[in-house]
Design a protein around this nucleic acid. Sequence first.
RNA 1: CGGGGUGUAGCUCAGCCUGGUAGAGCACUACGUUCGGGACGUAGGUGUCGCAGGUUCAAAUCCUGUCACCCCGACCA
Length: 569
Amino acid sequence: MRLSRYPINTMKETPAEAEVVSHQLMLRAGLIRREAAGLYSWLPFGLRVLKKVERIIREEMDRAGALELVMPVVQPAELWQESGRWSMYGPELLRIKDRHERDFVAGPTHEEVITDIARRELKSYRQLPVNFYQIQTKFRDEVRPRFGVMRAREFIMKDAYSFHLDQASLTAGYRAMFDAYTRIFTRTGLTFRAVRADSGAIGGDVSQEFMVLASSGEDAIVFSDGDDYAANLEAAAAVPPATPRPAPAEPLRKVATPGARTIADVAAFLKVAPERCLKTLIVQGTEGAVVALVLRGDHELNAVKAQKLPGVASPLQLATPQQVLAVSGTEPGYVGVAGLRCRVYADHAALALADFVCGANEKDMHLTGVNWERDVGEVTAADLRNVVAGDPSPSGKGTLQIARGIEVGHVFQLGDKYSRPMKALVLDESGQEVTLLMGCYGIGVTRVVAAAIEQNHDERGIIWPAPIAPFQVVLVPLNLQKSARVRELTDQLYTEFTAAGIEVLYDDRDARPGVKFADAELLGIPHRLVVAERGLEAGKLEYRGRRDSASTDFPLGEALAFMRARLAG
RNA sequence: CGGGGUGUAGCUCAGCCUGGUAGAGCACUACGUUCGGGACGUAGGUGUCGCAGGUUCAAAUCCUGUCACCCCGACCA
């Protein structure tokens, strides 16, 4: 491609709207342009990268035996009512009406449609197992789209759905997809990790996420230094302390703590460590009730764990000040565990404390020397908290470390979550009707592109991993407007390389060298060849890899062989 | 949705407090010089100052409303 014929400008300055590097560089390099919040156009350079990622995905999905199809973006509401998600899925589901006032949704995912296809097409166990996939636009009306295409409202997803007669087959199909994903992300050149996950709104039992490791990642991931245990922070189990709770040593005392509402305030005021204080959170329960969740002061509530507990409303929501007053007799900030008029769940770590500090259920007052059995009474033990670095691994080996990651893929075993309500049945060998078991497997294709930049860039711009670079080589002729020799040779190299199947970007603009170098680096093309009078006189061309710190010269006549060797290496 | 912030040229932003001819740099057009790390000179085009009301002789500037966008928190590929 000749750059002189390409009308998209690069930008020297960073647009103010972009917060993370990948977004900044995608705008500056002219890969994408924003149309509205969370809605982006993919310009030709960006699309080339996207297509490369898609191609790798397609090849590996096909290799794994999956069958490609395409389902409609706009889906009838009936299917969503049937699965129950019409009412379960929140405002993130974009609902639209057609001219006849009939309800539709802009598909955030396609379990309903694929299950509808499956129940109509699949009649016999002989047709199983089967895996259908598509690469297609999804719409999720995110509360807060951000970070460019990383969390856009409209994005491209590869979604696959497998159907099975029994659990053994589902397990095998899941395993095959896990392996395919491992190959896909390895081939894109990304550093990633597969972690255990919570299955979230899509539902189901077993699930793992593929995380690209990056310090700017939105997700916290947890892994053991003793074995290969790795999990999303949401899903990482906190191991109950092994040591038994000490016996009470202090008397129960009520102390004045004027104005001290937070754990930090109370700990500072009473000169005790936050880990000797308890925090009591009142949250919405089911059927209008409220529930108390008790944690050690230095620990954070894990909402995903909490909203799975019996009697707790999902999604998790804090109680109103009126509700707090009704069950505790005071306002938030002074709520304590003793004497609450509601169900109480206490985290294992909180239950291991003796002689602790907590609210007195009275404004500006806290209790010290509190002990569970002596002063509080019956509560239910639960795992409520996020693990912290240094916690023992749930695997039993090693301690936990925490890192940041970007979720680019997710594999689930759904079981019969959709096939049962939607009555997707087949006949088994004995002629009995059996409900299909399902797996589903997603990759955020557009997010992969952003994650690749997040993980591979420097102060000059993008550094594409070779397999997804928009072009393999950039030809940079210097002074080609003046030098017929430079122009002729570069034209010749362009023709020669292109004929050899190499993807070449030819910077034939009438621009100064600095401009060309800067753009080549911003765009992140892996290999650069400079053609200049200076070198030609010595019979040399100049090569520089995007990550190299210096250039190397090589003889003019060996250009194709030289480039082939670089591309192969 | 709650909290904070910003809307002025394609981009980055100044001007607003204290009302009086709408600005700079980058980008763009033409010509000339320059040509191995985002050049320089000369000339040029570029705006419903987010939108709608109001106050005023006069509003980018003050007031009210509204919309959009960005950032921080709870969700997801």
